[in-house]
Write a protein that binds this DNA or RNA. Structure first.
Lengths: 363, 363
DNA sequence: CCGATAGCTGTAAACGTTTCCGGGAGTCTG
DNA sequence: CAGACTCCCGGAAACGTTTACAGCTATCGG
């Protein structure tokens, strides 16, 4: 009796053939039993026994090749150390899990080649769909997004004409909220600690800051603008550089990590927050509430954007013929102690007594 | 001329067959050209052109089925919002990237079914290998780990006999370092804010705390022990409960997130840190250096553990026949302002002037 | 008691790729 | 000019699974 194939493949792991041979049935019957569809009691017993004996575990890759789906969804962000992405991830995860899929996350580190490579690799069928939040976008990148074999949803700004599902916020307006608030509380020498200008959010926030000052008729002083990475250490260093050459009475920071860095730099330089310098962060992450003093911060609705992105993705997976859609989530401002209107004068920098954090006052 | 297969599959995406047919060559030739091995100049030209025209992109799943590898490695942790896992991830990523693979992360949320499911799904060939850091371990779980089809490395404590590559630390000793330090600086009513006792780290730290007190001949007061989640909010709530019933002069916290929560609770209750209550966290994450006052913290060498785990994994992928190995990374204590020996008396709780953070003093 | 039907089974095709192998054409060497 | 060698090509098998299809047996209803 000439067997058609090795029963034990070289790497030793049993396949459905192994099980079928051992149970004395065809691979079709074995497969059916293992998937719980059909089979006589006797067959079921034999196949189950054989599978258990050899320790059979199905090869998901082969199954996916056949079924054209993997049950996986990926999220690619720049820096998973940034709590804003953690919040986004949690929101996405919740939606994705409800569809019975699992979420995988990849941190691209802002290296665009990395991101494109990931897109090329993962999107080529390893996952059923993908959510990407790029901070830099090149043409190469964009085409990789557009003709991805699996559905892709982009979180963040994208060229107006890009034929990709997209959920965004208006970070220019977000910066304006911060500036309005600071001007409204009497600040005039407002500094800005931004991330790299060659990133999409960096550029948008820069434009937003300049526009907001103009709006209020405040002349622009380039000395009050400083740029670093979107990270804690960079934010601190940038703020130190800024303080070395000028003397702001308020600081808008392009994200909360930068704001925390700024806080350190300010306090190390002997400035009091908010009495001497008010600080407003951006993204309104958990970190903002963890700091002393608690940070005012502009929420860009990251969790909401994540949720919506996940929903768009699931819809598109279900029906790939949908036209590209775009959604927008408005920013809002949460005012806390770091830019408090009435600085609690005497008591040292303990925690503000108003502890239940003053929530999301949208201005 | 009867073609053997549809040139355009139903879902419309081109395959290597499409390209081959269009270029007028065999699929073997097409595949070779697309992979850059062999082919006459004319063939190469035709195939390249055909591929470009139809927008061919190879199906990675099919390729993996053939090549038995995916170029992906997964990391499963409980909570990616905990900076300690971010540090671990970064270290792993660096190693993994050097092998030309990409890292995917999954947050299990501590739900053990979730983790087992992920193990079953991903490990069944979707990835070339996997690093898992479980906080709860069941038998079911363990067998899933042991007879995973792809190499698995576990970060964290595991039964002594488990036949799995494993890199761990000694968190009992870590807690002892904290207690030694506090006792050495004159503290006696030392509280302990822990994570859940049904988790591996929670149990180990509890045991470590009790042993350390015993070691110093300090009687155990159960009022000084409180348990919550390994999260910021839980840490804060737990500390509030603890403060409501007793009056510690020091607090050991089972991780940095809890420590930050404790800090908030303490300051809200009017205690000064470190004058009234010294605080020591655990994991020594970036967060510890971000707080005011900066947190003393026990480093459990997460980055180092991640690095080693990744190396073990790569070795095992290269040679699956290796015997199970176990490595251990020692804890160390970084002393900062929150448990400072000589509290800088007068100046309010600004940042400590010694800003280059006093590094990892291993006691 | 016979035909329809239901349930089970095995063969084989399919998913999309890589790769072994044999054959043919061309080039080089002696 | 014959033989060896190189290079390129196409057919076909293989990776491990699911599933359409057809054949078989046993049961049921009339």
């Amino acid at each position: 009796m000439g067997r058609k194939r090795l029963q034990e493949p070289v790497d030793g792991r049993p396949t459905v053939h192994t099980v079928a041979a051992r149970a004395g049935v065809s691979i079709a019957s074995a497969s059916r039993v293992l998937n719980g569809i059909g089979g006589s009691p006797e067959t079921i017993r034999k196949v189950r026994a054989a599978a258990a004996e050899v320790g059979y575990v199905p090869n998901a890759i082969a199954r996916s090749l056949q079924s054209q789906r993997t049950g996986l969804v990926a999220l690619a962000v720049e820096d998973i150390g940034n709590p804003v992405y953690v919040e986004m991830m949690r929101a996405i995860e919740a939606v994705v899990a409800s569809s019975g899929r699992q979420l995988l996350v990849h941190a691209t580190g802002g290296r665009i080649d990395n991101e494109t490579a990931l897109l090329r690799r993962l999107a080529n069928r390893y996952v059923d769909g993908m959510i990407v939040s790029p901070i830099r976008v090149t043409d190469d990148h964009l085409t990789a997004l557009v003709d991805s074999p699996v559905p892709v949803v982009v979180v963040g700004q994208l060229g107006a004409d890009a034929a990709v599902d997209n959920v965004r916020t208006d970070s220019r307006h977000g910066v304006a909220l911060a500036v309005d608030h600071l001007v409204g509380t009497g600040r005039r020498r407002i500094g800005f600690v931004n991330g790299p200008l060659d990133t999409v959010p960096g550029a948008a926030r820069d434009a937003g800051f300049r526009a907001a000052l103009l709006q209020h008729g405040i002349p622009l002083d380039e000395d009050l603008i400083e740029v670093g990475d979107f990270q804690y250490a960079a934010g601190r260093a940038a703020t130190e550089r800024l303080l070395a050459r000028t003397d702001p009475d308020a600081l808008v920071c392009a994200n909360d990590l930068i704001a925390v860095g700024a806080l350190h730099a300010l306090l190390a330089a002997g400035r009091r927050v908010p009495q001497d310098v008010a600080v407003v962060g951006m993204d309104d992450t958990e970190l903002a509430r963890m700091m002393f003093p608690q940070l005012s911060s502009v929420s860009l609705g990251s969790a909401e954007r994540g949720r919506r992105a996940a929903e768009l993705l699931l819809q598109r997976i279900a029906d790939p013929t949908l036209p590209p859609r775009r959604e927008q989530v408005p920013p809002s401002l949460a005012i806390r102690a770091s830019s408090g209107v009435t600085p609690p004068a005497p008591r040292p920098a303990g925690p503000p007594t108003t502890h239940p954090s003053s929530e999301g006052v949208t201005s």
